[in-house]
């Protein structure tokens, strides 16, 4: 009733209603959490800590070192490994993908190895990476690499394969060399697809990193969660999970926003 009237008055649009419902359901969840822990203690704090306890733990890790580092330190070391993995995957993956589309024989030859990397889940590489590199940054970077590499190759290849043939012919007619055609025509035309691949790679890599850090390492957000498990501190795990989730969203938003600056010629899809 009220909803209908508000709608007629133009106060409540569909979007506004969605927000209202969302705020309502989320606050209900929060109230339920507070009731279950702080107010009535339906659940033991050992099993589910109260929101204040989680916030307290967050503040504590922010100021006091936990397993050697404060929270920003863990975040930075996670970001560093992830950065190395994604960077290598991009540096190798983009040329490989472009070459896949450029030369079918190269593709046929390299494909078996590529499919092997593609079809074995990145986490299955963790034991191998540990065996090869021990508990070093390279281990995690390798797992991130394996997770990020396939989507970069596939999307680069797709991007190059989808370039309109007429552009390439036009460039050639105008006397451009192969290399120049590749650099000035094919790559800019394929760039949006390559960028999409990088975006998928970036989030896949982030997921894989958490897994790698859970298994091996002495710093990082995944390690922090694993330590929380060992100390039976659910609050620490919560802090870790929330930080990982927030960083994931932040990274994805940043990548989405930068697209407009990096690829100004791409038509922005609504």
């Amino acid at each position: 009733m009220i909803e209908k009237r508000l709608e007629r008055m133009g106060v409540m649009t569909d979007r506004g209603k969605a927000t209202a419902y969302g705020i309502f359901s989320l606050s209900l969840l929060l109230i339920l959490w507070i009731c279950a822990t702080s107010l009535f203690q339906w659940i033991e704090p050992r099993v589910l800590p109260s929101p204040t306890r989680v916030i307290g733990q967050f503040a504590w890790i922010l100021t006091e070192p936990f397993s050697g580092l404060r929270l920003p330190g863990h975040i930075l070391s996670s970001l560093e490994r992830w950065g190395w993995g994604v960077l290598t995957a991009g540096l190798i993956g983009i040329p490989v993908g472009v070459f896949f589309a450029w030369n079918p024989w190269f593709r046929t030859f390299v494909n078996p190895v590529f499919e092997l990397i593609h079809f074995i889940p990145p986490f299955a590489y963790i034991p191998l990476a540990v065996l090869w590199f021990g508990a070093s940054t390279a281990t995690q970077a390798m797992v991130v690499f394996v997770a990020a590499f396939p989507s970069i190759v596939i999307n680069s290849q797709l991007g190059v394969a989808q370039v309109e043939k007429i552009y390439i012919d036009a460039a050639r007619v105008l006397g451009a060399s192969q290399l120049r055609t590749l650099w000035r025509v094919i790559l800019p035309a394929a760039a949006p697809s390559i960028y999409t691949g990088l975006r998928i790679a970036i989030s896949n890599g982030w997921m894989a990193l958490v897994g790698a850090e859970l298994v091996v390492g002495k710093v990082g957000l995944g390690f922090m969660i694993a330590q929380g498990q060992e100390n039976a501190s659910v609050a620490t795990i919560f802090v870790g999970i929330i930080t990982i989730g927030c960083l994931g969203v932040l990274i994805d938003t940043l990548v989405q926003r930068t697209e407009r600056f990096v690829l100004p010629w791409r038509k922005v899809a609504s």
Binding site: G22, I23, S25, M207, I225, G228, Q229, I237, G248
Partner: peptide, 25 residues
Amino acid sequence: KWIVFPTFQLIRPVPPLAWIPLTIL
């Protein structure tokens, strides 16, 4: 959707693996 989706959106960005320590506990 309006009721359930926000909660779901909250959980979605967390890599599924990050729940392992919690489920083990």
